[in-house]
Design a protein around this nucleic acid. Structure first.
Lengths: 249, 249
DNA sequence: CGGATGTTTGACTTTGATCAATGGAAGTGG
DNA sequence: CCACTTCCATTGATCAAAGTCAAACATCCG
């Protein structure tokens, strides 16, 4: 697996090629406290946000007051990209934790100055990864029973947050109502499912943190396939080695 | 809205900039009959497919035999992009109707030959649009009751297939079980919802085709916002003026 | 301490799933 | 042309999973 990174947030970080592009633009970082509304559905679409650290949620509110969280952006993700082609934004953004963002004006994003070959490659890769995660979310929400959705959420976050320290404890940057808004349940169901999973020894809960105790049992329960970040850059076909089997288990 | 196009499939078509990139690659079109499996989950990820005409579905099968249709690709869409960064594909592809595809090897997709400025622009725009539709799907599936999901599906397809001929009849390229696999219901529920919508005069059914009879009532029912394709190309590549500000028209 | 925020639990209700039978349309082969 | 099959859609009866409602409990914090 390799790909270790220093930061405590696991190995998610802004790809070097994007950092490089960014440095050419002279964009100032933006620090936001947890719970800040960064963008509201319907605003003019002018900026995308590259997450440097923290957690940001993309969500949308439906006509009958229900909310759907569409994506949890971690370090290295770009929020707001879906609105690149529209006049107004179609989703809202909110920081779930204290976060640092780089607001990139769309005009700049499209400038040749930013779009060097390596940066384009990194962006494509990022978008592919986000699309893949979105699709997995859709499959979980569309076709799994409540219990399995929660297991899926835990495994997905565990996967995205994983580091090699062996410390398996991590935090879900959502409260139970928000978890419900993410996986299509109510806070009550979420609470019940968590309690059951805890009773049955699949997870252990310490405050808002979680330890996965029976990882492979949970993976088997829902047939979970690990999200594998590519250990080698997309545009450097390079030596075959590495992820032979990264998958299953 | 403008943007009329000749073909009978409404105004969806392959963006010119992508056609241009394609012509530099010498890719032969691939004709597939309706119901053909084009790619299976787990295959090596080597190719993406640009849809020239027809309908292609991306789907995934879950461990307990359930299927989730993730995306309906129409002319101009690219299927398989989510696997750009992985070794094996995470979704399967199937033609829902007779279709013509351009299989683009990923190595070629990444070649500078294909990736001219205008082609990059068109790809970004396409991905943004697909991400946006995926997010809307997720919101519908995650947070709407059965009846509203069906209404959403009809409106979404109506939107994507719309042309200006005033002929409001269109075909859903899915049978009722597949519709269920798309919006997270069973075929039985889908049948009941369609029957009710028809009784109530929202739609009219002629064989496998549909006419929307009370469009704005349906839009109000679920607070539907039209997917708006941008009336002008994002990078305005053709006439020199290139990337100045193309956006927020 | 009081207030805000979030979680847990139980009683009850509802939506959509499941099961099963029926019917229709299209295609095939004799 | 008629049996026969296959694939799909429809309908009704029943059931179960998750939603709703409401109250209690926990934590945190000034």
């Amino acid at each position: 697996m390799s790909y270790r990174v220093d930061r405590n947030s696991g190995y998610a970080q802004v790809p070097a090629a994007i950092t490089a592009g960014l440095s050419r633009l002279n964009v100032a970082p933006l620090c936001v406290a947890a719970g800040t509304d960064i963008q509201h559905e319907g605003d003019a679409a002018q900026t995308v946000y590259l997450v440097e650290s923290g957690w940001v949620a993309s969500y949308t509110d439906l006509s009958q007051g229900q909310r759907q969280i569409l994506y949890l952006h971690q370090a290295g993700d770009i929020a707001g990209f879906a609105d690149l082609g529209s006049k107004t934004t179609t989703c809202s953004l909110r920081s779930q934790r204290d976060s640092v963002l780089f607001p990139i004006p769309i005009a700049m994003l499209k400038s040749p100055e930013f779009l060097s070959g390596a940066t384009i490659a990194a962006l494509f890769e990022k978008y592919a990864q986000m699309q893949s995660i979105l699709m997995r979310t859709l499959a979980a929400v569309g076709r799994m029973e409540a219990r399995h959705r929660i297991v899926w959420l835990i495994l997905m976050l565990h996967d995205r947050v994983a580091d090699d320290t062996g410390d398996e404890m991590f935090e879900i940057p959502l409260n139970q109502s928000e978890i419900g808004d993410f996986v299509g349940l109510t806070n009550v169901s979420v609470s019940k499912m968590f309690s059951r999973l805890s009773e049955e020894g699949y997870i252990e809960r310490k405050g808002s943190k979680i330890v996965v105790r029976r990882l492979s049992d949970m993976q088997n329960m829902i047939g979970y396939q690990s999200i594998h970040y590519r250990p080698e850059p997309m545009f450097a076909p390079a030596q075959g080695r590495s992820h032979k089997r990264a998958l299953n288990n």
